[in-house]
Every structure is written in structure tokens, then in C-alpha cells.
Amino acid sequence: MTRQTITTKGGNAVEVRGLVKHFGEVKAVDGVDLNVREGTVLGVLGPNGAGKTTLVRCLSTLLVPDAGHAVVAGCDVVRQPRALRRRIGLTGQYASVDEKLSGWENLYMIGRLLDLSRKDARSRADGMLERFSLTEAAKRPAGKYSGGMRRRLDLAASMIGQPAVLYLDEPTTGLDPRTRNEVWAEVRHMVREGATVLLTTQYMEEAEQLADELAVIDRGQMIAEGRVEELKAKVGGRTLQVRPADPTELDRMVGAVAQAGLDGISGATADHEEGVVNVPIVSDEQLTTVVGVLGARGFALAGISTHLPSLDEVFLAITGQKTSGATAPETGSALHDEEYAGVSA
């Protein structure tokens, strides 16, 4: 079985136009347009309840949209659901494997359901377990797997049919950093093999690590889109945090950075609550320069760190508002319940 290809080379593997899905009063998805170019990763970034899961469920035939249309891998999601299901893979927030079956049995079953012969299903299951480092756990029930192993098994299950388009719905939510890195490595591997990926996430860092382009959504609507670099430029890249040994020196440090007139560095601020100076930077060179300047002026430093903008800061930079999750928790949680109705109800 070779990877399925899409009719138009170099075109869009996913095209969504005016997609709407309401649950009663809740506008889970409210007119979303997006494209994913073939062989690339689109990161859909948004807070809990933004409509990410509903969007993915519409695009994977689990929900029928109320309005708008979407073509994925050349198939209309509403008119050609069966054909579409041959071309997609879905890994949800909740591992969708049978917990009572072993890892191998899960993969074998999926191979058989995808019309592989017994022999092919067997070797594909073996191969996938090998590739996702699950061979040792092959015979154990999936319910006994750790969170990371289960997520890997879920990814393996989604990859058995070698789908043209892969949906990853918050693939690393709830995973520890090491396991998260393993999942990221797998996603990169899949993309190298030619898969088109639509990834939802709440983390700017994850989007930056994996995505070529970003779509930021909130309350069912797209509020920003573009290449990751463009959005990062808008948001301001990383922040360098410098902690002086003596907290009373914060303002003097801000003054020193400003006076130095460093190229491309402006907007250093003192955070008296945290006892740090925040300096927006875009490169490692700038980090070195700023720290060098402070050292040369004789400041005693107690700590240095850099951090990527959080989702809140991204939203703040793009919209001038905090996320809806933070300002309107009621709407957020109602939406949340709706989004996962399939799992909880």
C-alpha cells in the first residue's frame, strides 16, 4: 500500500469555507475558513472551548456541519464521508484505542478493518509497534499503558492506513515533557513521509515546534492566521527574563539596557512583583548582548531565563484582549462540555 495522493499536486489538502457548527446557543464553530497545503502542518491554536475539537470532528465526519463546506484530500466532508474516511487519520485528546485489547491486537484489528489481508495486517501491526517503540508492550492491554505509550499507540493506529491527512487534536495535552518530545518527533517523522497534518493545540511552543502555518481561533472564529514567523514577529518572539541579586536594582537595569542603545532591542520593562526585568528578544545573539551589557555594568545577576509567549500573551498581542477562556469562563466551559459530548455522554 503506498501513501494515497491527492488529485492536485502541491494544492491544498484541506480547504474549509465558512464552516459553522452550533450546539443550541453555543456557536462552537462560527464561520471558519482555512487551508492546509499538501505536506505541511497547520497549527490551530486556541484556548479550551475555542472550537478546535468541534472543527476537527466536523472535518473527520464525526459531526455534520450546519453550514459552509470543506474538502479534505479531495473529498467533500458532507457528501463523500465514506471516501474521506479512507484518506484520514484521527488522534484525539482521548486515546481512541480499545483499552481491553493489547497494543498488537488494536493495530491488527484496525488493519483488518482497513481491508488489509491477515498477513499484511499482521506485518503492519508488527512494523508500527517497532516504529513507535512499543514492541515490548505489544502483548499488554492498552489500558495498562502509560499516558505517553497510549498516545503513541493512538498515533500508530491512525497511521496504519497511511492517511493523506492526519488530524491531531491536542496530541500532547496532559503529557510530561519527555513524552511530549517523543510525540513531536513522531509527528515530524510523519510529515517527512509526506502526511498533511492539522494539529490543534493550546501551546504556542507546540505550534512553533511543529507547524508551518498557524490559525488562531477563539469562540469559534479565526482571529489570526499566517506563517509561524509572521505571527511570532507580531507577538514579539521570546522574552528574556533577568533576575538581579538585588531586587531594588530593577529600574536601574532597565535604564542600563535602554541607554546601551542596542540594535533591535527596545521595550525592556521591570516586573517588580516577580523581581525580574523582561526584555523582548528575537535571537540568541541579542540574549548574549543584553546579558553582556548588564555584566559589563557590574550588575550581580541571580537568574536568567527565556520564555515563549503563552497563549494568553499571543491573544493579547493579536487582539488586545485576553482569551475568552480567561474572561468568560461560563461560555468556555459550556462549549467544552459540548465539544466532548461524544466522549462524556
Binding site: 488529485t7 464521508p81 474521506l84
Partner: peptide
């Protein structure tokens, strides 16, 4: 849309035959 759907009449190529159906039931 720059990418046209596979079937122009909205037909669904993915119809599942009896034998495939029985095989799926067997696997389940």
C-alpha cells in the same frame, strides 16, 4: 475551492461491499 472534490456528482466511491462488510464484522 482550488481542489475539486473527487466525484463530480457527489457520488461516494467508498461504498462498502458485502464481503468487506462481513470481513469488518469478523474483525470486530
Amino acid at each position: 475551492m482550488t481542489v475539486p472534490p473527487v466525484g463530480t456528482t457527489g457520488g461516494d466511491e467508498g461504498r462498502i461491499g458485502l464481503r468487506a462488510n462481513l470481513r469488518h464484522i469478523g474483525a470486530l
